[in-house]
Amino acid sequence: MNMDNKLDDLLIKRVIPDPSSNLANRINAMAEEALIKKRNNVNNLSLSELVLRMFIIPKPAYVTAFCLAFGLTLGLYGVSSDITTQDWFSFLSVQQEEWL
């Protein structure tokens, strides 16, 4: 027999043992179990945990940056709307003698 054919023949005849008959069932059962476990985990959360979950910030860096920018804007423009700029500067440049 040609050597190539002989090797091919050997490779074709290679025996693969059958898998356990319940392999697919086992995988499906484990997947179902995992799903039930996941659902139970959500159901078993206490009220406090559920409330806490509402306050989870998905992007803390963005939220911090936004709050900072918002605070600065409010600080800069908000002050001038309540007190006149003149009052504000006269308050800052008040001389000690005048007070006394």
Binding site: P19, A24, I27, N28, A31, E32, L35
Partner: peptide
Amino acid sequence: HDHQAFSILVERHSE
């Protein structure tokens, strides 16, 4: 998370 669809895939390809 459709378990039935997953089961079909497993049965179709596990062997």
